[in-house]
Amino acid sequence: MWQVVVDSAAATVELGRSLGELLANGDIILLSGGLGSGKTTLTQGIAVGLGVGEPVTSPSFTLVHEYAGRLPLYHLDLYRLDPEAVWELGLVEYFGRGVVVVEWPERLGALLPREHLWVDLQPGAEENERLVWWRAKGSRHRRLLKELRCRCASWALKRQVGP
């Protein structure tokens, strides 16, 4: 578990970009947090880090957006679904291809992939501040999180908490 505090949407994008630059084929990023917590903003940063040239828009209405970057990026929003609908729509088939970013991963229920990087965005004390919690499952995602922490240490991010 690792926590980082970002103080603006621009910092959230920057954090996402750092992550995006480190991602490898098969990585799965799960983003939880309430409405307006910055999930799509973080994804926009990830897309920049992956070299996606077009703007990343919210997939709430359309469910899945695909982008061609250094690796293919699949951006899913499960807001309106339950695990049964996720299963019937075949959305779990995206896992393991390219980079998959999932908003509202709580909706996956038992379909949660065993290895992933879970990111939780919570409102901070200040209005534009966000507490970003990170938890990695499986060795490759643990390695990924470690690399991200090294990265962030060097660009003097905001306050960092955690062991």
Partner: peptide, 17 residues
């Protein structure tokens, strides 16, 4: 074009909130 949410989507999300 919108760079994030569509106008109708913003209406829907705020309404739900």
């Amino acid at each position: 074009r919108t760079r994030d949410d569509a106008a109708g989507e913003a209406f829907d999300k705020v309404a739900r909130y």
